[in-house]
Structure formats: structure tokens, C-alpha cells
Design a protein around this nucleic acid. Structure first.
Lengths: 174, 174
DNA sequence: AGCTGTTGGTTCACATGTCAACCAGGGGTA
DNA sequence: TACCCCTGGTTGACATGTGAACCAACAGCT
């Protein structure tokens, strides 16, 4: 069967998207690490926890939010626990389950990290593109997500924001 | 100093971009692995080599193309060599240097993988977005790259295409 | 109650990436 | 030539991610 190759424009688009991906991930992760002592993964875990009621979530709920392999989540939580950022207890209603909670120390760290992180995001993306471009980004992402959902089995991932505390104390917006 | 948080639209854009990133990477890597026995990293190495004259590159040139840490490159090439996908020789003109070459086996693998890969890319992105959207993607990526270059020290990464053989036997375009 | 299949989590072995240390070979300069 | 610093590359220790195996608890049946 004949392969339909990418024309130069398509190829350029794909390459530049991959480049942006790598560059963004690397940058965001490094900034968080060096300035806040958190990996991007740590940040996302803490962000989701801080958004949850009482800063606690069942392990599997956290896993669904992050779209992480369960073994990854387990390992990562183990490490974060050792660092005192999160804690784990047995679930009362389901003896199998674990409840993950953010600790005061974890809370402090992400509250310190959030402004930096938001600053980076604005500095590297938001601050330099038009509203229309942002809109297109959302559109394209949506299409890709739909396609992935259609192809693979499962969902794709919900990136956590930065609302800390119960409500909006430190929400990303305004 | 007051932090300028992201408004809901900005936040949505950032989250969806992150989601797309994770979803795309995961998908592309898994497809290559399961159907071709290559990781995305392997694929990129082989793609760059196959595009180079005679399928050979100095290690550090490859490193620059990929924007990989030198230790990462060294480790990865070691593994690929063990699998018979690439080979290494001492450089004649610089006794420190190594020249990396793609092996016949590596060549076979990427020639088999390329059509699949291109199909995936089309299937998940190119085939579902308008030309204008693609153009915007390039624009935005460019801005981000510029920003990253301005902030950090170095460049960002040039994603390899799929031109195999010397010339265009299996080029992505056409 | 007793079976059975599913679900939530952990663990192990292994693949991969990062950083720092190291080493050998350039290449300039005295 | 001798000295020095830079460059290209490898290595080892360690952080992180993945898949499969495993285990205990739940849940539906009989």
C-alpha cells in the first residue's frame, strides 16, 4: 500500500511541535527543580491534592487525574512521602484503598512554587502569543485528544491548575 | 510583588497544551515500540543518521541535532549498539571523537518504521487540523523556541524527519 | 457461607535519563 | 617542548518510568 508521506509544510509543523514539546517540558521541569525543589511531576501531584477537598484524594482518583500508571503513582508517592510532602492512610470505607493527603510542608512548597510556575508559563508561552493563537492551541489540542481517545482505549490527562487551599486562595486565575 | 495569575482562558490553553503533549508523546512512543520495536528515541537517532551522508555522524553532531545531554547520547548509543542498530568507530581526524554509523539492521528497521510513524502522525494530528491551524502551530512553536533561547542558554531541538537513504528514497515529503 | 472475577495497590526487575567525575586528546602560548 | 585549558566522550551513582507478578479486599452469585 502506498504511503502518504508528509509534505514539507506538514513535516515542518510536526517537527516544530515536537521541538516545542521538548523545549517546554525541559524548561518547566528545570525551573521548578532549581528554584523550588520540585519536579514537574511533584508539582502536578501537589496541585491536584491542593485542589481537592481537604487536600486528600484516593490514590486511584489521583491516578486518573494525572493519567499515570498505577505503579508510577505508587512509586512516586512513596518518594514524596519520604520527603514529607504527602502522607498515606488506609481508607476507612474500602480496606484496600489508600488516601493520599498533602502535608503542611507540601502545602508550603507548592504555594511557594505556584507563583514562580505561573510566571514561567506566562514568560515562555502565554505572554507572547495572541488570544487567537491560544484559542487555536485549545482547538488543536482538543482534536488531538479526541483522536487519541478514539484510537487508544483511554483518556488523556487533565493538567492540574494551581488553585491551592480549598477554594481560590491561590487560584491561577486572577 | 503581586503575582499575575492566569485567567481561565489562559489556564485552559496551558492545560490543554500539556495534555496534548503527554498524550501525543505517549501515543507515538507506544505505537513505535509495539509495532516496530523502536522507542521514539531510537527512531530519532536512526532518522538523523539515515539523513546524514553515508549514514554516519560524529557523536557530538548527533547530540546537537537531538539536543541531548552528552551522557544520555553515550548511554543510548551503547544500548543501540548492543542491539545492532548502530556502530561506533574512532574518528580518524580527531582521536578523541567517535563516529556513529547506522547499520544495515538499523536501516531496515527504520525503513519499516517510517511509514507506520508517518501514518500515526497523520492519523493523530495532521489529518485532522486545517492548514491555518498547522500554520499557527508553527508560529507559536517558533515564539516559544525564541523565548526559550532567550531565557536559557542554548537551543531547543530539531526533530528529525524520515528521509532515509542518502537522498529521498523514503523522504517524508511526497 | 463459599467461589470467583474484579479492583486498588505494592513490589520487583529492568529501561531510561541526569549529574558529576573523570580521562584522553586537541590546540594555543610561553 | 612544556604547560594549560578546552573539548569529546565514557562511566558510575542515582532518580524516575514501565510492565508483570502478586496480594488483599470487595462484590456478585449460588
Amino acid at each position: 500500500m502506498a504511503v502518504r508521506w508528509l509534505d514539507p509544510g506538514e513535516q515542518r509543523a510536526w517537527r516544530s511541535l515536537m521541538d516545542m514539546q521538548d523545549g517546554l517540558s525541559e524548561f518547566i521541569d528545570r525551573q521548578l527543580r532549581t528554584r523550588c525543589g520540585l519536579s514537574h511531576a511533584d508539582y502536578q501531584v501537589l496541585a491536584h491534592l491542593s485542589e481537592a477537598p481537604e487536600g486528600r484524594l484516593r490514590s486511584f482518583e489521583l491516578g486518573e487525574l494525572l493519567h499515570w500508571e498505577k505503579s508510577r503513582l505508587s512509586q512516586h508517592l512513596g518518594r514524596m512521602q519520604k520527603r514529607g510532602l504527602t502522607s498515606r492512610e488506609r481508607c476507612r470505607t474500602d480496606q484496600r484503598g489508600a488516601v493520599v493527603a498533602i502535608t503542611p510542608r507540601g502545602s508550603d512548597l507548592i504555594e511557594a512554587a505556584a507563583p514562580q510556575h505561573v510566571g514561567d508559563v506566562r514568560d515562555v508561552l502565554i505572554g507572547h502569543v495572541t488570544a487567537a493563537e491560544l484559542e487555536t492551541l485549545v482547538t488543536v489540542s482538543g482534536k488531538v485528544q479526541d483522536r487519541l481517545r478514539a484510537l487508544g482505549k483511554g483518556g488523556v490527562g487533565s493538567y492540574p491548575g494551581c488553585s491551592l487551599g480549598q477554594g481560590h486562595d491561590l487560584d491561577l486565575d486572577r
